[in-house]
């Protein structure tokens, strides 16, 4: 075997191969490049959100009034608490991830296993919380009325507290008319019927003297404008078109439909990243258990997936600021 070439004669030369540019391995460098490009994608979404917000700067929903729910605490007004909890969970799972990377540097297999497991649990709690947040947002809380111009009218009592449609509107039984068209497919495109009709809302408003209309336009103090009793009645009678309960991609009881569109798109895209992060973490977790990295004497794979996981946390920090705080 003495004839086997074991050296190429290029060792120590910059372009001889085998040298790591920037002292980072190929995998880590590529992960950084991916993170930069993904960061640009997310900033493009957030910048687009900023664009729409500046366009409707006088009518954008106030996040504290939209996200006020905490699981198991029904009917309590707790703005931001649950989102803060979600943020903390994600930061915490970032910590267990970095602890796993650190244990990997010291080749401690059992510690890496434990910390990877905790990271996966944190990720699952976060994704679950996000699903709950979505379902609460889709169901809505008070209900509102949409005008011909596409604006939202909400209802408050004389003290300025929000009033739900169910508190003053009595629904008349509506038979769910199913139009039969030639193909028999009419029911597919009809969608769901709201609980109340516009006539129900007008009757309810006339019957309750203490109910006023609140428009989505913000006054000089940054609060939504509340109309007088006469203005409220004439506004609803002349302009109201649809009853809106909850939010979807077309309408949104909290304000401009774009708010809901961006909420679903950006938090959805982030949630998808968290979900893929959990899946990748699970794969790496099993590789750790099987001893793949123990045999390689290098836990760099944990480090690479860690970079991705921290990036997901980093994005959430920005989403949290721009959706819930600013």
């Amino acid at each position: 075997m003495s004839t086997t070439v074991v050296t190429s004669g290029t060792e120590g030369k910059t372009w001889g191969g085998g040298s790591k540019p920037l002292h980072a391995s190929y995998g880590k460098l590529m992960m950084w490049f991916f993170i930069v490009s993904d960061a640009l994608t997310f900033s493009a979404f957030l910048a687009a959100y900023g664009f729409s917000r500046f366009k409707f700067i006088d009518a954008w929903p106030i996040a504290d009034e939209v996200f006020t729910h905490v699981p198991f605490l029904h009917g309590q007004d707790l703005p931001m608490i649950y989102v803060a909890f979600m943020t903390f969970i994600l930061i915490m799972s970032s910590v267990t991830m970095v602890l796993a990377v650190d244990a990997g540097h010291h080749l401690k297999k059992s510690k890496v296993t434990l910390y990877m497991f905790l990271t996966i649990i944190g990720g699952l709690i976060f994704v679950g919380s996000q699903a709950w947040e979505w379902s609460t947002f889709i169901k809505g809380s008070y209900g509102a009325v949409q005008t011909k111009g596409g604006n939202i009218l909400q209802f408050v009592d004389t003290d300025g507290h929000r009033v739900a449609l169910s508190d003053f509107v009595v629904a008349t039984p509506v038979e769910n008319v199913r139009r039969e068209d030639v193909n028999g497919l009419a029911s597919v495109s009809q969608g769901t019927t709201p609980t109340y009709t516009i006539e129900n809302v007008i009757h309810g408003l006339e019957a309750h003297d203490n109910i006023l209309v609140r428009t989505q336009f913000l006054n000089e103090h940054g609060h939504p404008t509340v109309l007088s009793r006469e203005e409220s009645l004439s506004k609803v009678k002349s302009e109201a078109k649809h009853v809106v309960e909850g939010a979807n991609l077309h309408v949104n009881e909290y304000g401009p439909p774009l708010f809901a569109d961006f909420f679903f798109f950006i938090t959805g895209f982030h949630g998808f990243h968290v979900f893929s992060g959990v899946v990748i973490n699970i794969i790496i977790f099993f590789n750790v258990i099987l001893g793949t990295y123990e045999k390689r004497k290098s836990y760099e794979m944990v480090e690479k997936v860690g970079l991705y996981w921290h990036f997901v946390d980093l994005v959430w920090v920005f989403v949290f600021t721009f959706f819930y705080l600013v």
Binding site: W32, A47, G50, F54, F56, I57
Partner: peptide, 30 residues
Amino acid sequence: SSLKRMVVWTAIFLILYLVFILLQEGGYIF
């Protein structure tokens, strides 16, 4: 430090540029 600059400056420059343009335009449309 070259890796730091490669990642951070690229992102910061492009993001500031995009955010400036979009927010300016949004304000104009308002």
